Simulated assay, not measured.
Amino acid sequence: MTAAPTPPAPKPYAALALQIAARSVEKQPDRAAASAQMLAMIAEIGAKLRSSAIFIQQYGGTPVRLAVLPEYFLTSYPGRISIPDFAEKAALDMDGPEYAALGEIASAQNLHLAGNAYERDPNFPGIYFQTSFVIAPDGRVALRYRRLNSMFAPTPHDVWSKYLDIYGIDGVFPVAHTEIGNIAAIASEEILYPEIARAHALRGAEIFVHSSSEIGSPLATPKQIAKRARAFENIAYVVSANTAGIEGTTMPLASADGNSTVIDYKGNPLSESNSGETFTAFADIDIAALRAQRRKPGMTNFLARQRLDLFAPVYAAATHQPANSLIEPDGTVRQPDRDHFLRVQEQVIERLSKEGLI
């Protein structure tokens, strides 16, 4: 891969992690009704985002150029709905009206809009991928990252050989080289996996947009700790948007609420939200200062000091979760039940135990 040339650093700007409630489509009778609900919610988000950005610029003097929305904000999680049924009812089309509506917001408000949704890919009928996206101010989808670690949903790794044939490694770890910096996405609990962030950083990422729906707490949760670690070990900003609860399910509303945050490239939280729908997780992003830090020799330049070839043989020899678990011998993609992923994990644990590795 040939890296894109690094454009001049932008002036400092504000990034916003907009903490809003996700809205389940579970009770909607069909796809048309689910899509109507999603489009109505997008319109609401546009109004909330505009009002938030106006206040932030008046408060701090810098315009909002990047806004991050929470995980699966349009649909909530699938629950026990079968994978093909959820794909049919709720997963977005890659060129669907929901992306077009989000693109209109990004264009009208002149910002990069990041979020997360379940998405159908015509190359893989009958399943969906959880996709983190960045929409540019011209309305186009500038980045599309499919979650690689998921407990009960298909991932590109489950259809690995076919996915690589279609998208290549650039489509697995995409980085958007934009006028506000180099952006990569990390989905939900993937913030707990240092390899995901490091792979993006090695491809030039300076800002990690992190859409999540997680337990908020005044205590230091694993995700809160991981966000700070991923920031300082990669010398990168983390803009993490959590849900303000999930509407339309039997789960208590505030079970996944609070702690949206912006963390600087030294691992310091610059802002953090309390609970409820709020815009209070916002802060200035200084890409010029980040690049200066990355180019400075010293003990804290973790990217430059990383000796990657030390670890390559260990990673290459280790086989934990298998690739292509959904590829049949004839090359077709199998539609799994949700217990498929649990069975695969149980088999991995059993094998690692027999090998004396765990």
Rank of each mutant, 00 (worst) to 15 (best):
G171D: 10
A184V: 03
I191K: 02
S273F: 06
E247K: 07
T249R: 06
I169R: 06
K227G: 10
R228T: 09
S212Y: 03
I183N: 10
T250E: 13
R198W: 07
E233F: 13
I169Q: 08
D257T: 03
G216P: 12
N182H: 14
I169N: 06
A187T: 15
Y265I: 00
H200G: 01
I215P: 00
A176D: 13
A205W: 04
T221E: 10
S273T: 15
A244D: 12
E233T: 15
A254P: 00
S217L: 10
S273L: 11
P174Y: 04
Y193F: 13
L270R: 07
E272A: 12
A231V: 06
V172W: 03
N242T: 09
I246L: 03
A220G: 02
G216F: 13
I207Y: 03
G204I: 03
N182D: 15
V175M: 11
E233N: 10
H200W: 02
K223N: 13
Y193V: 12
G248S: 05
N268K: 10
R198N: 05
I180P: 03
S188M: 08
T243F: 00
A220R: 15
A201K: 11
V172D: 02
S273Y: 11
N242V: 13
P194G: 05
V239Y: 11
G171C: 09
S188A: 11
P174S: 04
L253W: 04
A201L: 07
A254N: 14
A184S: 15
A176P: 11
E206K: 03
I183T: 08
N259C: 11
P222Q: 06
F208W: 07
I169A: 06
R198P: 01
G245C: 02
D170P: 01
A220D: 14
S271G: 09
S275C: 06
V262D: 06
I215E: 11
I263Y: 01
N182E: 12
S188C: 15
F232M: 06
P222A: 09
I263W: 01
P252Y: 05
E179K: 10
T221D: 12
Y265T: 00
E195L: 13
N268Q: 08
A199S: 13
A185N: 11
K223T: 13
I186C: 12
P269N: 05
A226K: 07
I207P: 01
G181M: 07
I191E: 02
T278K: 01
S212A: 15
L192Q: 13
E233S: 13
G204P: 03
S255G: 02
Y237H: 08
P218R: 02
I215K: 14
H210P: 01
T278H: 04
E195R: 13
A254G: 15
H177A: 07
A220E: 15
P174W: 04
L270F: 02
I191D: 01
S260M: 03
A187D: 12
A229C: 04
P174Q: 05
G258F: 07
R230I: 14
S271Q: 09
G248Q: 04
A241N: 11
E190Y: 09
K266F: 12
R228V: 11
A241L: 08
H177P: 00
D257E: 03
P174R: 04
T243H: 01
T278D: 02
T243C: 11
I263R: 00
R228P: 00
A231P: 06
A229M: 14
A229F: 14
V262A: 08
G258K: 08
I186E: 11
P194R: 12
S212E: 02
F208G: 02
T261F: 02
